[in-house]
Amino acid sequence: MKNSLAVISGGAVGASFRGALGTVLNGSPIATFLVNVIGSILLGFFYQHVKSNARLSDPSKKFIATGLLGSFTTFSTYSLDLLVYLKEGRFLALGLYGGGSILAGILSVILGVSLAKKVRRL
């Protein structure tokens, strides 16, 4: 029950952050791109932190990873954005947005892991 409440609570926070960023950027695909990059950095950081810090409770892990970051990142919206570009025949945008998001996501996770390792050394 604690894990479920943690996911629900984290989800409310993450979805609110995502909605706020989307509102600020007028629902632009750039908002989705930023959410995925920021979320990937945070998830990479969290992954590395948890891997080297077993003291974090299970509900805390669920709150952050599944709830907050799971509702903040928007892969489903990303996929829909790609479909719209495809249907509109905007192939350059499709390639840049699709490939750029994947590359930026991978690099962002690497950055998050690296940042967590540096913070741990402090």
Rank of each mutant, 00 (worst) to 15 (best):
S40G: 15
G27P: 07
I110A: 15
R121Q: 14
S57H: 07
S114V: 08
V13G: 14
K62Y: 04
L83D: 10
A65F: 09
G100Y: 08
T32H: 02
L83Q: 15
L21C: 09
L69R: 14
T32S: 03
M1E: 12
I110M: 11
S9K: 04
G100S: 10
L34C: 07
K117A: 12
L68Q: 04
A6G: 14
G95L: 09
K62C: 09
L56R: 06
G100H: 06
R55N: 15
H49N: 06
Y97W: 02
A20L: 15
S108D: 03
L43Q: 08
L43K: 07
A54F: 08
Q48C: 04
V24H: 05
V119N: 01
S4V: 14
K61A: 00
V109Q: 00
A104N: 03
S52T: 12
G70P: 05
S71Q: 00
S108R: 04
K51G: 00
S9I: 04
G112M: 08
F72A: 11
T23R: 11
K51F: 14
L111A: 12
Y97D: 01
V113C: 08
A31N: 10
G70I: 04
G19A: 01
V37S: 00
S76P: 11
T77E: 02
T77N: 00
K62V: 14
L107D: 04
L80C: 01
S71K: 02
R55G: 11
F75Y: 14
S52L: 11
T74I: 00
V35C: 08
K61Y: 05
F72R: 12
I41W: 10
I64D: 08
G105P: 08
L111G: 02
R18G: 15
G19L: 03
T66L: 06
L94D: 02
L103T: 13
S57C: 04
L80Y: 15
A116I: 05
G100W: 07
Y47N: 13
G98H: 01
I8N: 05
Y85M: 15
A20K: 05
V109H: 11
F75W: 13
L86A: 13
F46C: 14
L69Y: 10
N3I: 10
I41S: 07
G19Y: 12
F45S: 06
R120E: 15
I106W: 06
K118D: 04
I64V: 08
K51W: 09
S16R: 04
S4E: 15
Y47H: 13
N53W: 03
L107R: 02
G14M: 07
N36L: 01
L5N: 13
A31P: 03
G27V: 03
V50L: 15
P59F: 01
V84E: 13
D58W: 07
A20G: 13
A31Q: 07
T73I: 09
V119T: 09
V113D: 09
G98M: 08
R121A: 14
S52A: 09
M1N: 14
S40H: 00
